[in-house]
Amino acid sequence: MDEAQVARLCEIAPKYGLHLEHQGLIITKINDQATTFDTASYMPDQFIDLLSKIIATNMKADLWQWQ
Rank of each mutant, 00 (worst) to 15 (best):
E21Q: 00
T28F: 11
I26Q: 11
Q46I: 04
M59N: 03
A40K: 15
T57Q: 13
P44M: 14
L63E: 05
K15E: 00
F47T: 09
I54R: 15
Q46D: 12
Q5F: 15
L9I: 13
K29H: 13
T36E: 10
K15Q: 08
H22S: 11
Q65V: 08
D38M: 14
A61Q: 02
Y16Q: 02
M59K: 05
I27A: 07
T39W: 04
I27D: 03
I26E: 06
L51H: 05
L9A: 07
W64L: 13
L25K: 02
D38R: 12
V6I: 14
I55K: 15
F37T: 11
D32W: 02
G17F: 06
A13Y: 11
A7Q: 11
N31K: 03
P14E: 02
F47R: 15
L51T: 11
N31I: 13
T36Y: 10
E3D: 12
L18T: 01
A4F: 11
Q33R: 08
R8M: 14
P14I: 08
Y42G: 02
A56S: 10
L18R: 03
I55F: 10
L25D: 06
N31P: 11
I54H: 14
L25Q: 03
G24V: 01
A13V: 05
I54D: 00
E3I: 15
K15A: 04
D45C: 13
K15G: 06
I54M: 15
A34Y: 02
I26M: 12
Q23F: 12
K60E: 02
P14W: 06
S41E: 13
L9P: 09
K53E: 03
V6R: 09
L50R: 15
I26K: 08
A56E: 14
A13N: 14
T57N: 09
I27Q: 00
I55G: 01
T57K: 07
Q46V: 07
V6H: 06
Y42V: 07
Q67S: 10
S41W: 00
P44G: 12
I48P: 06
L9N: 04
L63G: 04
V6A: 06
I55Q: 14
D2M: 12
K53C: 05
L9E: 09
E11T: 07
L51Y: 09
H22G: 03
I54V: 14
A56Y: 00
D62M: 07
I55S: 11
H22L: 02
E3C: 01
A7E: 13
I27F: 06
G17R: 01
C10E: 04
L51Q: 08
L18D: 02
